[in-house]
Design a protein around this nucleic acid. Structure first.
Lengths: 361, 361
DNA sequence: CAGGAAGGTGTATACGTATCCAGCACGCTC
DNA sequence: GAGCGTGCTGGATACGTATACACCTTCCTG
């Protein structure tokens, strides 16, 4: 009995054809479920295929059809659970459409990212979903006008006419900051994400405007650099601890950053929300871990992934219209890290309250 | 000026050849940095390539060379940070070797996994790294004898002569359980992982034997089913709460399970380690988050990834020796979730103590 | 019964690259 | 000056599949 992967001597469709006593074209027709093959012939070919455990060569097929059924997915960092969730969603949707994905993880590194994009094009992917573009990644601009399907997710590029899917980061940060203010915080700081990303720019703007409108001055010393990472948040926390006058509330550019920030405080004996109120961004699963209980601005990952795939498949299908930007609403998820009693909000109905899921066993 | 992806009319090496006034063979030689091309010719060809922004077609190249420089990586669940870390490590190593990876996420689903393996073979990957085999995935057995390079990571298959890289799960669980016992716990429970995995089998065995040797009976009611997931741990926690007589310590099959378990207790007002001592498995970054502080058995992910790639590349390079199994040591990382004062261990020197990294700013 | 549609099959070629082989020019050695 | 190695180049072919086209048979229609 022959087995999976057992193709000693490189079995190809011609070998199958010979053994089944038909032409290679007929074998191809059987493989592709074409109708114009007689039942007897089809059966004979299938038997030989089965016997030799023949597996068609996708490379050759793609070369001949000029379609790879493959799309590229570029993320900043797989270890960030937010991106892991995006990868999972997009992979699932792609699989259901018969599409394969090639995954690339740039580490916020321009050169590496560009290299990855080049690799994807060498592999003749039919489109690319990018979640990690920086504001100065202008070379993306050179892909789009040629009609190459590109969809930006999570981040976008102003002035580059590419489809994109984002949440309303400005409003998310604005509402989060207002939430602090309503709780009585008169001093609010911010831990940045990577600076040249649309995501950070919009969030920082929302933070600043909320303070401005409340007549609260923005203090430069209360804005720290993070890098969308635990380590960045931790380092920001250490710097925070050295301040003479500390803000009583901190907005963080994403959940990992927030957790790193909280950990730094924890290592010095300070607790959240007692010492400082904290809000993050993304609502990754880690934020919901009970001992952490991070209040955060949710990104609806599944909806974003679905929208992105829809846009991309439209482009791959030949759609040539103007670029579309899909902006999904941000949603504040309140947990204990900013110290409020969720019930208070329920009564006031001012914010969206999402209770932690308590599954039935 | 022409641009990336701009290959209107399908530029190929023949077009380059014509425009450069050379043969297609020469273009190929330039692309592959062969020595036997005169500097002038090389320069001329490169200029045309630059001008047309030509990108060679990897598919055609792979077809001709019969080498794809691609390996398949099959993981159980990208959202599990343990696998995310493996993916990251292996991707990096692969990239440094000029190898691409195709990533597949089976969801502990036999059929899906088999489908993925088939896809990988259709894509003519030169080898496969599998992290998600189940004990009854005997079809893997059919790959190996044909000399197809397969390396199993994290889990292995007894009786299947494939290379594998694992940690000593038995000892890890044994030591973790002994740790509980030394702390004075006379009642220790266990939350399983997926049952038909070598990983769970070995860990459960270590748990049982440690209890046996200490003369502590293993109570069936104190062993719960989990599935290497937060949800599984959470459900186990709910069942745990319904027990009349609860054990005072719980070993969990992995960190996610442990965190889910802790969260279930938390939602009912119980705290770890006050109410129950908990130890997990893997030492993912989440375990080190300070508010969680999970004691756990570390898997040295980077070392495992490196070993796996080395084994796989050996096989791809033609090595045909007997299968090699690499067993790395498990290391108990003590944090607060089992309530011990780490300094006590430092003094006694009985366990490995790994302090949480406190980075210098 | 002529004519045509429809179903089934084979031949030839294309997809884009790598590589074997032959050929040519040049410079060197004896 | 014959012989020979060496550096560079082009022609031809292979990789494994899909598909346009032609051909044949059969069966149906008028």
């Amino acid at each position: 009995m022959m087995r999976l992967g057992d193709q000693g001597g490189h079995v190809n469709s011609r070998v199958i054809a010979q053994l089944a006593g038909v032409s290679q074209a007929t074998v191809s027709r059987v493989l592709n479920n074409r109708t114009n093959v007689s039942p007897q012939t089809r059966e004979r070919v299938l038997q030989v295929i089965e016997a030799l455990n023949y597996t068609p060569n996708v490379l050759a097929r793609s070369l001949a059809t000029r379609k790879t059924n493959t799309i590229g997915l570029v993320v900043a960092n797989i270890k960030n659970p937010f991106f892991a969730e995006i990868v999972e969603s997009i992979t699932n949707i792609a699989a259901s459409q018969g599409m394969n994905i090639i995954l690339c993880s740039t580490s916020q590194d321009h050169r590496l990212q560009r290299q990855h994009v080049r690799m994807l094009i060498e592999h003749r992917v039919q489109g690319i979903i990018m979640t990690s573009v920086m504001l100065d990644d202008s070379y993306i601009r050179t892909l789009v006008p040629n009609g190459f399907p590109v969809v930006l997710v999570n981040r976008y590029l102003p002035g580059v006419p590419a489809d994109s899917v984002v949440i309303d980061n400005y409003s998310g940060a604005y509402e989060a900051t207002r939430h602090f203010i309503r709780l009585g915080h008169a001093t609010v700081g911010y831990v940045r994400g990577v600076r040249n990303t649309s995501t950070n720019r919009d969030r920082e703007r929302g933070y600043r405007e909320a303070l401005n409108q409340a007549g609260i001055p923005v203090r430069r010393g209360w804005i720290f650099d993070g890098h969308y990472s635990w380590q960045g948040g931790y380092n920001a926390g250490l710097r925070f601890l050295r301040l003479r006058h500390r803000p009583t509330a901190m907005l963080c550019a994403d959940d990992l950053t927030a957790i790193g920030f909280i950990d730094a405080l924890y290592d010095r004996g300070l607790r959240v929300p007692d010492a400082v109120a904290v809000i993050g961004f993304d609502d990754v699963q880690e934020a919901s871990y009970r001992p952490i209980g991070l209040t955060t601005v949710r990104q609806p990952v599944t909806a974003m992934a679905e929208a992105a795939m829809r846009l991309l498949l439209d482009r791959i299908g030949g759609y040539c219209g103007d670029p579309r930007q899909i902006v999904l609403p941000a949603e504040l998820v309140i947990r204990k890290s900013c110290g409020a009693n969720p019930l208070w909000y329920l009564a006031r109905g001012e914010e969206t309250l999402v209770a932690d899921a308590v599954p039935v066993n």
